[in-house]
């Protein structure tokens, strides 16, 4: 099964700091699929707070979400929602 990918953008003003990272991880843990985020040549597990933090993604960063697994489409959609809601900030 090929990966499903989707471009997303960080829109909240503080970027992916601890709270947004925790929020994304909590949403992603609900899915069976593997979810990865690629940014600036790094690829990290979207179910890992430490991984997300090391991306140091600030406002305006564009990144790619890629999922593989039985619920890949749902996971990609959920990730997109979390990003476009600005992690509930601002």
């Amino acid at each position: 099964m090929p990966d499903i990918t989707q471009e997303v953008e960080v829109v909240n003003s503080l970027g992916i700091h601890a709270r947004p990272a925790a929020m994304l991880v909590q949403r992603m843990l609900a899915f069976e699929s593997n979810v990865f985020i690629s940014f600036n040549g790094n690829r990290v597990n979207a179910k890992s707070i430490m991984g997300l933090l090391t991306l140091a993604a600030t406002r305006g960063s564009r990144m790619t979400v890629s999922c593989s697994g039985p619920d890949a489409q749902e996971a990609v959609d959920a990730a997109h929602d979390v990003f476009s809601s600005g992690f509930g900030e601002d």
């Binding site: 601890a18 925790a22 991880v25 909590q26 597990n45 179910k47 890992s48 707070i49 430490m50 991984g51």
Partner: peptide
């Protein structure tokens, strides 16, 4: 609570 999430971090564990 934040510490619990770090404890369960998949990338670190893997």
């Amino acid at each position: 609570n934040a510490h619990l999430m770090l404890l369960d971090d998949v990338a670190v564990y893997d």
